[in-house]
Amino acid sequence: MIHIENLVKRYGELLALDHFNLDIQEGEIFGLLGPNGSGKTTAINCLLALLKFDKGTITVFGKQMQPDSYGLKRQIGVVPQNVAVFEQMTVYENIDYFCGLYVPEKGKRRELVQDAIQFTGLEDYKKMMPRKLSGGLLRRLNIACGIAHRPRLIIMDEPTVAVDPQSRNRILEGIVELNRNGSTIIYTSHYMEEVEQICSRIVIMDHGRSIAEGTPEELKQMIKTGETIVVEKAELTQEQQADIANLPHVFRVEYDRERTLTVKCTSAQHNVVRILNYLQGQGVTFGRVLSELPTLNDVFLELTGKELRD
């Protein structure tokens, strides 16, 4: 559906996109994950023919995307990163306006607008002005304006920034439902939990490049970490830390001032048991014990040496 090949974009000396490649299939919820400044929004804006780029090709639905590709644009819905609504129009009027840019027929549009309002849970706020809405509701309005015309492709650029957890969950559920109803979705974010939760395929970006691509499981299998075990309030000596590091399948041990022991192990059975047995054998007292499967942050950390939120 979307094919990006060797995309290069420079802002003066700064290389924002460095031979970026992307392939998105129809029916996916495709995640674009990366820290701030990695090039996600730049890639999206190039895709939408809003930005000039220095090299590369972009095709959407098999055709070159141009600023005046009205046929293609009719099938795309955009939810930009910043709230993009008219301050002087009510919630209903805003959705109606933007839907009207795609769907000229009045009757059909009325239905679509009503559906969008229901979908985003804005029934009680139809006649309110945007300045009276909370952050979460504004975001929902922002989404409603982008999806009301039921596009084939929806591009959502960090739609849950500064949104309360309740609204966020609602938004994520809504995205999944949109996908179920037939829309392909490109979802950019730096919140790995969201991307992990809803995306079928993910590309991790850093410094304008794609550094990893695959399903969440595939990505996690790319890295060494199979399990992360955290033991709180453990009194340990240097020798004991060294012993733990030598246990089978353990490849990294960290111990901080809070007396929290963090052990990274490769994927294997009974990692927790081995560590707890050792601690008991040494008579070490400890608090809670947690075991976590690897996250996308771990993937990013191993691939780049830094956290997603750095």
Binding site: L48, L50, P67, I76, V78, V85, F98
Partner: peptide
């Protein structure tokens, strides 16, 4: 951002 949204519309 409003202009951005209007720019991607098929008008």
């Amino acid at each position: 951002p409003l202009a951005l949204r209007r720019s991607v519309a098929p008008v």
